[in-house]
Amino acid sequence: MKRRGVVGRALRQMGEDLWLQGVAISTLAVALAIMGAYLALCLNLNQAAGRLLTGPTLLVVTDPQVRPEEGRVLAAELARLPGVASAAYVDQQEAMIRFRRQLGPQADLLDDLETNPLPNAVELVLTPDLAAPPELAAYIKNMAGVSDVVTGRPWLQRLERALRAGGELAVALGILLFLAVVLVTSNTVRLAVHVRRRELELMALVGAGGGYMRGPFLVEAVLQGLAAAALASLLLWGLFVLLAAPDALPWGLRLGQILAFPPLLPGALGGLAVVSGLMGGFLGVGRSLHPREVL
């Protein structure tokens, strides 16, 4: 005769009620898909923001009479300054090409310009630990061949602050969503406990301990969670493929980049499903397996 361990008992009790499994897995899959969509959106937005915000920068505008070769020499000189991570000379033609790329479908707006208004410049990326950028800017401004130093882009700084606040809000919302998934899991486990109430009471009467009775429900919750995570990942992948149109957005961003399916998402959802399965399992079984509460 065959005896089973906790996983075997969990699989058997799952097999005995396939309808219940269907309800539990589909409910969890919806909850995890919402969580996954949220995670994917946060990850993609974070990456998009990373492309926009490349850290502290300075734009050194060169005098109009400075030739490209001299501009490159200046860039090399600037790159050696303390606090400067890198320096690159960008002439006005290259700057215009970039600007057109960033404007995307709206680039034809630039066709009406008679002359290129963009200056030749050296783009500096500063090290994040630089203590006093204004002093560095003042020093550079006095260097030969430098016409102006654009020290900051206030709208980007505001965007950075807004993104930081948004990030904190996103974490709080993520925690709430995770708690909702735990709640859904605990309710499905509670339903499973209710369906098998008579059997559990019988086990309690013959001396089964909490672990013996609880074990299969925890394993069941985890297995259901993993199945639901796979289903949710598949659902989200399909949805992202459908929604990620090739249309370009302002600043050179593409919808396909914002709505890209993160490759780590199935793993993250699986991990969440395991943790929420264990937490929800404990909460769902809870007091309903109290040894005194028998028929």
């Binding site: 019988l202 309690a204 009467l205 001396g207 301990g209 909490g210 040894p291």
Partner: peptide, 25 residues
């Protein structure tokens, strides 16, 4: 309550309505 299962393992209980797991052998 957590020690109750240890006591019940020393008992044999028989009920009027049998209390079996119907689908199990």
């Amino acid at each position: 309550p957590r020690h109750l299962p240890l006591l019940r393992r020393r008992l044999g209980l028989v009920f009027q309505d049998f209390r079996l797991m119907p689908r199990r052998s």
